[in-house]
Simulated scan of single mutants.
Amino acid sequence: MSRTVYVNGEYLPEEEAKVSIFDRGFLMADGVYEVTSVLDGKLVDFEGHAKRLERSLGELEMKAPCTTGELLEIHRELVARNGIEEGMIYLQITRGSPGDRDFVFPDPETTAPTIVLFTQNKPGLADNPVAKQGISVISIEDIRWGRRDIKTVQLLYPSMGKMMAKKAGADDAWLVEDGKVTEGTSNNAYIVKGGKIITRALSNDILHGITRAAVLRFAREAQMEVEERSFSIEEAQGADEAFFTSASAFVMPVVKIDGAEVGTGKPGPVAARLREIYLDESRKTAI
């Protein structure tokens, strides 16, 4: 059965959804996006995603196509129309299609942005068996642009990184710049040493993960020690545990880095506990 999607104010069957060939998102990756998880038919961390979206739009001098309240209603309507119990809602806003192709930005007051939302049904998202066995990652050079804190649709290199990992027989890739891990292709990276959770501090170098913020808050509330600093691949390989966080994977253990087993080579207790806490607390606060 066809999904119902949302395009510029209309709910449509996915086969009828259309965007202009002159849309700047298509021509120049001139757009931003968010992905919100759905658990038990409710939205996880919606407020955080909405605030980050507002920030991304502001950094690119783009106009919001609707209010946060309207955006919430659109999300809920799509969940209801598509019967999503567990899954994700993908939102993309571009600068729109002001006319012919041009490098110069159009006036945001005279050009309507394009807004698109669609759902992905993912039964078993919370009970993903991969979380019980962990994943493997490779390291690759981070050659992305310098504003990774803006959640833009420029996802070609992350996509290439995932393909590099697949060709190497791994599950994903961690990006390295100046000898230090920045983040994963689509997630924030962590290690655990002596019970201490270590992850890179926020800056323009990494995405300000919504799941990251929640997980670190829950970790501190559980009296876990957190240190925000950079770490190398070698330090990660010698850690007791490693994991990543994202809106679609929550907390995912990493058990092998560049072929070297991390810790026991199996998911560790800190990552397992953080995943449990995150899922429990997210279900309580989902809207």
Rank of each mutant, 00 (worst) to 15 (best):
S2K: 11
G9I: 07
F22H: 11
R24K: 12
G25Y: 01
L27Y: 03
A29V: 05
V35H: 00
S37R: 15
L39F: 14
L43R: 14
G58P: 11
C66Q: 15
T67N: 06
T67G: 04
T68F: 00
L72W: 09
H75R: 13
A80S: 14
G83N: 03
G83R: 09
M88T: 14
M88V: 12
L91K: 07
G99T: 13
R101K: 11
V104E: 14
D107M: 02
F118M: 08
N121M: 05
G124I: 15
S136T: 06
S139F: 04
E141F: 08
R144G: 03
R144S: 08
W145N: 08
V153F: 09
Q154P: 04
Q154I: 06
Q154H: 15
P158Y: 03
K162V: 05
D171M: 08
A173H: 07
A173C: 08
E177H: 06
E177I: 01
T182K: 12
T182R: 12
E183H: 02
I191P: 04
G194S: 13
K196N: 10
I197W: 02
I198C: 07
R200D: 13
S203H: 12
I210H: 08
I210A: 05
A214Y: 10
L216T: 01
F218I: 14
A219W: 07
E221L: 04
A222Y: 06
E225A: 15
V226D: 01
E227L: 10
E228V: 13
S232K: 09
E234N: 13
E235N: 07
E235Q: 13
Q237A: 11
E241A: 08
A242N: 09
A242V: 08
S248H: 02
A249R: 05
F250L: 12
P253V: 10
V255E: 04
I257P: 06
A260N: 15
G263V: 06
P267K: 07
G268T: 08
A272E: 13
R273V: 09
L274K: 01
L274T: 01
T285G: 04
